[in-house]
Computed example of a mutant assay.
Amino acid sequence: MHVRKLVGTQHPLLNTARGFVYDSKNNLQMRGLVVLLLSKAAGPSHAASDLLAQDMVSGIYPSQRNLAEITELIHTAFLVHRGIVDLKEWTGSAGPLKDMQFGNKMAVLSGDFLLANACTGLAQLDNTKVVELISSAIGDLVQGIYYENSNNTEENGLTDGVDVASWEEQTFLSNGALLAKSCQAAMELARHDKESQRLAFKYGKHLSLGHKLNSDLQPFVKSGVVDPVSFGLSDAPVVFHRQIVGQERWRQQLQQLLAAVKSEKGVSSAVDLCCYHSNKALEAIQAFPSSEARSALENIASAVTKF
């Protein structure tokens, strides 16, 4: 009922809700799928009791299935929260201002509702280490989004930026921590040892970074004319380019940024880093027993290098 009220307001929350599951090309519920595949690939641990193994369905414990749903809920909640618009751009007398204000309220309430449900489900897993892991991932998400917003302010968005190391750190917080820690938590729920948990975390981390690099590279590797507004100044190729050419030259090239990034080493460096993270994810997952689930995870990790 409330979403219907938003129809016609052109609030970004509508586009966010529309794209939760499918973007006309790919299923976007990747995080939950990876948690399920990794759970299946790892299978039961030696420490798990026979009674616990009886509860498995298709090689996945019910608690791991719940964790996959919780991971998607948290991701969706933050997507909704990101749908909030800056009301300073709207005039006070305009009718659309009220629409945007209503949409913002819906974004906040809807995101909070999803996050509350995720926290309730998390508590029902009855595992303090998993609660600690996912809670810290939520904290990482908040910190990562804060960094993104502080780096994209009007005052410093065009000039200061971040270097490559900072970009990787911030991208892990905002895009990788949730998946990496969810993969680790899935191993903990099955009582796998610390080495398996470390490898699961490693797979989730490098897959996330590779996926983000692939996304950042799309405007630069697609054929044809690219709309300059389709990439951000904190995207990986731009960060590499800024570091390579230096601050002064960067200022001079702002008006022709897309052409400059294509002609310098920013794109090729970002592609190399994407391949690095893909290989690291593959390295981690190959430590698990051979299975269809492992093959699927290998295919997902390899896919981030396809442009």
Rank of each mutant, 00 (worst) to 15 (best):
S136G: 03
S136A: 09
S136W: 02
A137I: 03
I138H: 02
I138S: 06
G139W: 00
G139E: 05
D140T: 02
D140Y: 04
L141Q: 09
L141E: 09
L141M: 13
L141P: 10
L141R: 09
Q143C: 11
Q143D: 13
G144C: 04
G144H: 02
G144K: 01
Y146E: 11
E148P: 01
E148R: 03
N149C: 07
N149S: 06
S150L: 06
N151Y: 10
N151M: 07
N152E: 10
N152Q: 13
N152A: 03
N152M: 07
T153K: 11
E154F: 06
E154V: 12
N156S: 12
G157H: 06
G157C: 05
G157V: 00
G157F: 02
T159H: 09
D160K: 15
G161N: 07
V162H: 04
V162Y: 04
V164Y: 01
V164F: 03
V164N: 00
S166M: 13
S166I: 06
W167R: 07
E168D: 12
T171L: 01
F172Q: 13
F172D: 11
F172P: 05
S174T: 13
S174A: 13
N175H: 13
N175E: 12
N175T: 14
N175W: 01
G176L: 02
A177Y: 10
A177F: 08
L178A: 07
L178C: 08
L179M: 07
A180R: 07
K181T: 09
S182V: 02
S182P: 04
Q184C: 14
A185S: 12
A185I: 00
A185R: 04
A185F: 02
A185T: 00
M187P: 01
M187R: 11
A190Y: 03
A190S: 15
A190D: 15
A190F: 03
R191F: 11
H192V: 03
H192E: 05
H192W: 10
D193K: 09
D193E: 15
K194A: 15
K194Q: 14
S196N: 13
R198Y: 07
A200C: 08
A200L: 08
A200I: 08
A200D: 05
F201M: 09
Y203L: 11
G204L: 04
K205R: 15
K205D: 01
L207E: 01
L207N: 02
L207S: 00
S208W: 06
L209P: 13
L209I: 14
G210I: 03
K212W: 00
K212L: 10
L213S: 15
N214M: 10
N214Q: 14
N214E: 12
S215N: 15
L217N: 10
L217S: 11
Q218H: 10
Q218V: 09
Q218Y: 07
P219I: 01
P219E: 06
P219T: 03
P219C: 04
F220G: 08
F220K: 10
F220R: 07
V221C: 12
V221G: 12
V221S: 10
K222F: 02
G224C: 11
G224K: 14
G224Y: 12
V225T: 15
V225S: 15
